[in-house]
Design a binder for these strands. Structure first.
Lengths: 248, 248
DNA sequence: CACTATTTGTGCGTATGTATC
DNA sequence: AGATACATACGCACAAATAGT
């Protein structure tokens, strides 16, 4: 971000100063004046350059952080985010590791937590169980090249899949764990997709900045003969992942 | 939002004042103390209640607007947004009107604009044309019960579908328009899904507030024998729509 | 390890602009 | 026209995190 005179910031032009400054920064990124991961000048420097108060610069930066363009780190600076996204396939046979093969040099699933609990309304419905039936919940995080790319909770009928947590911890794979219970194949029966802002838990789990967006999928997996075995809710950081729908 | 003393807002507790106030408001909504579409007290009143500056209240409200919980309208007030979502089906035979049947009493597509232009890289690839080949672009908005639920751009080969804009204007249906060109059936070949914050155009087209999220699908439709006929990019307001994936 | 400089984060007070009723 | 309520902008002060010295 070199010269670019302050004189193009116009007061009482109908466009707020902070929006004009935000647009200037976007332009600088588009031109290549600000490269990916490059640091912006400090807020005070920008304020001086544009002849505005530091708060006004902060409003501009804040908007771009919300838009997923910048990342501000207290004590360090403000940086331009990279924009490449992994393409995560969703289809009849959605599998984490296989799906990302070729796009990353490394990927794996970490088991974060597990618990046995009574099924909530939606979990019971998804699995075709009575409400309150015992289910096992596995919390996992998917990572690719060291970066978190998904955060999922999966529920299984406790009676049928007792010990799946240990299998998961050992194998690091849902597919392999289910195989231990005689499930050689399973299919995606339904997927509902939505998006929202990341909440506090998402921010921590996925290493995101406040204001980041997560794609949320709620899915049911079934055996080839239609028996529900897994209910899951997955969250993907929208800035790092896109979903590619294939034959479902 | 009745009583709830200010004394639960704690200074130097490690949590910023604005975040504590935002959480209080979320709690009030969860409890039902603030109903859907209810107006919040004015900023100055909240500031006084919590014993903070008005700016601090504004930070809290601003965060909740970003999170899609509130909607601030200059000169009128700040309101709680409703949370019900339409479920938009995506599958092999994705059709706008048929998909929303049963969920809304009324839905239709409005043709906003059309143009003939040279195909961009991705459009050419999607349609299997040479880059720069002439294509027709249709801009449409989907509405259900008077609310915008989608905004789409669709591209067709100009040579083959000359006049599709008029068909679209008359019929208000892509399916019906394609039928005039001898396309009785078509299938969804590929769909890539992502999410981002709404840009200025989205805000205007979909009647959203700054900070709103849009789900974006990029899709190619083909004839049953695999010939690409339509490339499209659709945007759905995430606060009003979820996508339900069905057999693709 | 303490100290300092740098940089972003939080909060207050004030003034003025703009949209709505 | 006047009152109300949100939006923008400035200036000041201090807190918190980081990176060096």
């Amino acid at each position: 971000m070199t010269g670019q005179a302050a004189d193009t910031i116009e007061r009482r032009s109908g466009v707020s100063l902070w929006r004009q400054i935000a647009d200037r920064i976007l332009q600088a990124i588009a031109i290549g004046d600000l490269a990916e991961n490059a640091a912006l000048p400090p807020e005070v420097a920008l304020a001086e350059r544009y002849g505005v108060n530091r708060h006004t610069v902060r409003s501009a930066i804040s908007a771009l952080v919300q838009e997923g363009v910048l990342r501000a780190e207290q004590g360090r600076g403000t940086f331009v985010l990279s924009r490449k996204r992994l393409s995560y396939p969703i289809g009849a046979r959605t599998r984490f590791s296989a799906g990302l093969q070729g796009q990353t040099s490394e990927r794996h699933i970490v088991l974060l937590a597990f618990s046995v609990e009574p099924a909530s309304q939606r979990v019971a419905e998804g699995l075709g169980l009575a409400r309150g039936a015992e289910v096992i919940r596995l919390e996992t995080r998917g990572e690719a090249d060291g970066r978190p790319v998904s955060r999922a909770a999966a529920w299984f009928e406790a009676k049928r899949f007792a010990g799946i947590d240990k299998a998961m911890a050992q194998t690091g794979s849902i597919t392999a764990s289910l195989a231990r219970f005689g499930i050689d194949d399973y299919l995606r029966q339904s997927t509902v997709l939505s998006a929202r802002h990341a909440d506090a838990a998402d921010l921590a789990d996925l290493d995101l900045q406040p204001g980041a967006i997560v794609l949320v999928t709620v899915a049911v997996n079934v055996t080839p003969d239609g028996q529900p075995i897994q209910f899951s809710e997955s969250r993907f950081p929208a800035e790092r992942v896109e979903l590619k729908l294939s034959a479902l």
